[in-house]
Design a binder for these strands. Structure first.
Length: 574
DNA sequence: GCCGTTTTCGGCCCGACTGTTTTCAGTCG
């Protein structure tokens, strides 16, 4: 059973939780959490690197001690230190820490005074009124615990961007109409364009006498007010989504926007730089001693620590500050750079609109080209096309191209199934008639990592293989990615002149941001494609571009920013 | 536990809100 980076991070976080309950040094605990986050966001597998006999490279915040522990987890799956801690203190207590409003101090008190270690015991004790009797607890805390346990049973997950956008836009519109309000923006992970968000952080500029806070908690979708203050309030919507509102004066807008956009890793790094420069940076501004020297514009924050502006999508603590300091920030791709869409379906298979209708929609996007890539025969649930049907579609596209001469170029393609043995689903005699292929896995997701990786690489050996579509098969919140060695796949693509897809569908966003950056660094270009099954799906391109930006991609790194002659050249394999 | 053109020791981002107690600890982001 391979140890994933996420497994290592889980163990490190568990150690941090238990040490925290024991009252260990807070900075020691932070070191474990930082290490967990670093490992979780690595683009390569620690266990694999170690298995190949290589040493763990030096990573920020991971010294000799933690490196040793990480190696132990990667090779054995466990950590003797954790087992040792668990002999002193019950492992189940980490579950209690997950209840909002319960931190290490309260969990420790509950455990020591009442010998409670599980959620069930906690709920029972709370209902019997035993929690309120503890020193430092009271009736309200007890009620809150019961409520949180009930909520937890319903289990809410992070929501995808399109849903977040819908919710956010209506709250923003609502708040903008409140008197005295001059600015309302959504910050947080939403502004960093993360594929899923756990909450919405809304920032507003308002006059002292504005009733914005009252109006916020009166918003029609509010189920529960979690906190309500002068400058900050938190509500839960009926959907379970948490929304925070922060209100600042105009002169603090930039500093507050930077602060509430995060990420926290990025913020901590920026503030450290500020300290070095003798500055204090907080959400109200940039201060030298007591004097405010900036904070109205977001740029002020970066300028004060000697950095150029860093785009929100890059602010994840993945080297953006170092890159900014060396003036090596990427010039991120934008939607306007996209020249065409390379992955579309029609009614010939499981699309909802005809070839003509899909192409018309692409023309309305001002694309120079669009590729029709219906499924191949093996994907029977989508009525995949056999060789004869593909030939018919090729003829139809030829006729359409003649008719649309000058308006758009329709590329002849196919979404070609990669069979279990790594062969492709249609004969080469047919494939050679196409402009491009996007190839993908639709069956046998459960192969072991080694086999799945080799299956795909074998498919790339076919000279008609162009783009590996949705390379991990994941469906956000629904289906885990299948096991592949992404570094090997990208390297194999590089050697063979193949490309990787960033599938822009907000349910997929596959490749993810980290793998996009890895492909860029390894010199493999990426096709940002919508996988559209109907007309409005073409609009998903912007989510793909968002994710591409999070992956540090520049126009140069993306296949479909090129005009057709250049794209045609790139698709030719030697 | 990590880290260093201020330091190998002594720091480690910073502030808001709540509930409880009576001036502040705990939690959160």
């Amino acid at each position: 059973m391979p140890v994933h980076n996420a497994d290592i991070a889980t163990v490190l976080n568990r150690v941090a939780d238990l040490l925290e309950i024991e009252g260990a040094n807070v900075f020691r605990i932070r070191a474990y959490r930082n290490a967990a986050r670093t490992i979780a966001s690595l683009p390569w597998s620690v266990a694999e690197v170690l298995a190949e006999g290589e040493d763990l490279p030096k990573l920020p915040g991971i010294g000799e001690d933690l490196a040793g522990k990480i190696k132990e987890i990667a090779t054995t799956g466990t950590l003797s230190q954790l087992e040792e801690i668990e002999r002193r203190i019950p492992a189940a207590l980490t579950q209690l820490m997950k209840i909002p409003s319960l931190g290490p101090k309260r969990v420790q008190a509950i455990y020591q005074k009442l010998n409670i270690t599980t959620l069930d015991e906690l709920e029972k004790a709370a209902r019997e009124g035993k929690i309120r009797a503890l020193f430092g607890f009271g009736q309200k805390t007890e009620e809150k615990i019961i409520e949180e346990i009930e909520q937890k049973k319903e289990k809410k997950e992070r929501i995808k961007l399109p849903v977040a956008e819908e919710v956010a836009q209506s709250i923003v519109n609502y708040l903008r109409q409140v008197s005295g309000v001059s600015e309302v923006v959504v910050a947080g992970s939403y502004r960093r364009r993360k594929e899923v968000v756990a909450d919405l952080d809304i920032l507003a500029v308002a006059s002292q006498d504005s009733p914005i806070m009252q109006r916020f908690i009166n918003y029609e979708d509010v189920d529960r007010v979690v906190a309500r203050g002068e400058t900050k309030s938190t509500v839960l919507l009926r959907s379970g989504l948490q929304v925070d509102l922060r209100v600042v004066p105009k002169e603090s807008y930039g500093a507050a926007l930077h602060y509430f956009t995060g990420s926290s890793t990025h913020n901590i790094a920026i503030r450290k730089l500020g300290l070095k420069a003798g500055l204090k940076i907080n959400e109200y501004g940039i201060f030298r001693a007591e004097e405010r020297i900036g904070g109205r514009e977001e740029e002020d924050v970066f300028r004060s620590v000697g950095l150029p502006f860093i785009e929100p999508e890059l602010r994840e603590g993945r080297g953006e500050i170092e890159a900014a300091a060396r003036h090596m920030l990427p010039r991120l791709i934008s939607l306007a750079d996209i020249r065409g869409d390379l992955h579309l379906h029609t009614t010939a298979t499981d699309g909802r609109f005809s070839l003509e209708e899909m192409v018309e929609a692409a023309i309305r996007k001002n694309y120079q080209y669009v590729a029709i890539t219906d499924h191949s025969r093996h994907v029977s649930v989508a009525h995949g096309l056999d060789a004869r049907q593909i030939l018919q579609q090729i003829e139809a596209i030829d006729r359409l191209n003649k008719r649309l001469e000058g308006k758009i170029r329709v590329l002849k393609g196919v979404e070609l199934d990669i069979l279990e043995d790594g062969s492709l689903d249609l004969p080469d005699e047919v494939l050679k008639l196409l402009d491009l292929t996007v190839c993908s896995v639709h069956y046998n997701f459960n192969l072991p990592l080694e086999k799945q990786t080799e299956r795909i690489i074998r498919a790339m050996d076919n000279p008609y293989f162009n783009i590996l579509a949705h390379p991990t098969g994941r469906l956000i919140n629904e289906r885990k990615p299948y096991e592949v060695d992404m570094e090997r796949l990208i390297e194999a693509a590089r050697q063979r002149g193949c490309f990787m897809e960033l599938n822009a569908h907000p349910d997929r966003l596959d490749l993810n941001d980290i793998h996009c950056k890895m492909a860029k660094e390894m010199g493999v270009k990426i096709a940002v494609s919508t996988d559209a099954h109907n007309l409005t799906d073409l609009d998903f391109m912007r989510y793909g571009v968002d994710q591409a930006r999070r992956g540090w991609l520049e126009p140069e790194d993306v296949l479909n920013t090129r005009d057709w002659p250049k794209l045609q050249q790139l698709l030719k394999r030697r």
